[in-house]
Computed example of a mutant assay.
Amino acid sequence: MSATVLVLVETIGEYLPMLENAGFELIVATTPSARQAAIETHGATIDAVLTRGPLGLTAHEIDALPKLQIITVIGAGYERVDLPAARARGIVVTNGAGVNASAVADHAMALLLAVVRDIPRADASVRRGEWSKVMRPSLAGKRLGILGLGAVGMAIARRASLGFGMPVGYHSRRPRNEAEYTWFADARSLAQSSDVLMIATPGGEGTRQLVDAGVIEALGPQGLLVNVARGSVVDTVALVGALGNGHLAGAGLDVFDDEPNVPESLKALPNVVLTPHVAGLSPDAVKATVELVTQNLLAHFSGRPVLTPVPLG
């Protein structure tokens, strides 16, 4: 397959031979400076771009790639890919919705358990030679609200319901009739009926600060929040305030507004568990994601429909 792919994703190096073995020539540029240099130097030869939601691809960059035919996005989110610019050029966009759902759901439950049982502080105390025992709540039977019942949300719901006996509610744009869980018409009413709010909805302007001060207030002082979606979905200022003044019990966060920059105000809080956007990273998940990217590229450059197209309107 004779096509040149600009790779912007920094977490898939071990699996890039899959693309090379399929016949693609790769230009790997995983830092901002390398990205700019690659587009300036090789822009006229690039046929495809491999990116992820937070890295995106701007209209200016699309304009600088005259041969660009397809943008493939690792993972479900594509919030920083300029879709109108792609549509104007007739460029195909694909994503990897659902491929890493199991890994993300596992991590979401791990964050939740770490917050509920205060695992990080317990671990730190033992390492300091202490034997400090603190009574912590059980997770079993707590009411779980999931914001976004896509592949990740469904995977979380199954783990919580079957593994921990948690009643599950959810909010999405419309009810999923095949789901056995309770639908709520808005995020605030979902939070009000939940002990735990798990965020698994796509990012982008449509969900920006969907979890605002009112939703956090509805969750209440005993409530817990876990975000494995996008930092933009949560009002970080309101979240920090609620965690600091006792209006929210705790949070587990894998995503942030300006990654990799995490506010010092969040780092200083004792009731927060933080991880560096790694929920979707497991060998199985990354391999499956790159396999899907490869199949989408092969389909496109062979004149066949891609497997996971993103609607461009």
Rank of each mutant, 00 (worst) to 15 (best):
Ala187Ser: 06
Arg188Asp: 07
Arg188Ile: 11
Arg188Met: 11
Ser189Thr: 11
Leu190Ala: 03
Leu190Arg: 02
Ala191Phe: 03
Gln192Trp: 12
Gln192Ser: 15
Ser193Val: 15
Ser193Gln: 15
Ser194Cys: 13
Ser194His: 11
Asp195Gln: 13
Val196Phe: 12
Leu197Gly: 03
Met198Pro: 09
Met198Gly: 11
Met198Trp: 04
Ile199His: 00
Ile199Thr: 00
Ala200Gly: 06
Ala200Cys: 08
Ala200Ile: 07
Thr201Cys: 01
Thr201Lys: 01
Pro202Val: 10
Gly204Tyr: 08
Glu205Asn: 08
Glu205Gly: 08
Gly206Ala: 15
Gly206Arg: 14
Thr207Arg: 10
Thr207Asp: 13
Thr207Leu: 11
Thr207Ser: 09
Arg208Val: 12
Arg208Asn: 14
Gln209Gly: 05
Gln209Ser: 09
Leu210Ser: 06
Leu210Thr: 09
Val211Tyr: 00
Val211Gly: 00
Val211Arg: 00
Val211Cys: 01
Val211Asn: 00
Asp212Ala: 07
Asp212Ser: 07
Asp212Cys: 07
Ala213Arg: 04
Ala213Pro: 04
Ala213Ser: 08
Gly214Val: 02
Gly214Ser: 03
Val215Trp: 01
Ile216Tyr: 01
Ile216Leu: 04
Ile216Met: 02
Glu217Gly: 10
Glu217Asn: 10
Glu217Met: 06
Glu217Thr: 11
Leu219Phe: 02
Leu219Gly: 01
Leu219Arg: 03
Gly220Asn: 15
Pro221Glu: 14
Pro221Arg: 13
Pro221Lys: 15
Gln222Lys: 15
Gln222Val: 14
Gly223Ala: 03
Gly223Pro: 05
Gly223Asp: 05
Leu224Asp: 07
Leu224Met: 11
Leu224Glu: 03
Leu225Pro: 07
Leu225Cys: 09
Leu225Ser: 08
Leu225Glu: 06
Val226Trp: 02
Val226Gln: 11
Val226Asp: 06
Asn227Lys: 00
Asn227Tyr: 00
Val228Ala: 03
Val228Trp: 02
Ala229Glu: 00
Ala229Phe: 00
Ala229Met: 00
Arg230Leu: 02
Arg230Gly: 04
Gly231His: 03
Gly231Asn: 10
Gly231Arg: 04
Gly231Ser: 09
Ser232Trp: 04
Ser232Tyr: 04
Val233Ala: 05
Val234Tyr: 06
Val234Ala: 10
Val234His: 10
Asp235Asn: 07
Asp235Tyr: 01
Asp235Ile: 01
Thr236Arg: 11
Thr236Gly: 08
Thr236Cys: 15
Thr236Tyr: 12
Thr236Gln: 12
Thr236Trp: 09
Val237Trp: 04
Val237Gln: 06
Ala238Leu: 03
Ala238Gln: 02
Val240Leu: 13
Val240Asp: 14
Gly241Trp: 04
Gly241Gln: 09
Gly241Ala: 07
Gly241Cys: 05
Gly241Met: 05
Leu243Glu: 07
Leu243Phe: 11
Leu243Trp: 08
Gly244His: 10
Gly244Lys: 06
Gly244Tyr: 07
Asn245His: 13
Gly246Leu: 07
His247Tyr: 10
His247Arg: 04
His247Asn: 09
Leu248Ser: 13
Ala249Met: 12
Gly250Met: 04
Ala251Tyr: 01
Ala251Met: 05
Gly252Pro: 08
Gly252Ser: 15
Gly252Lys: 07
Gly252Cys: 14
Leu253Asn: 14
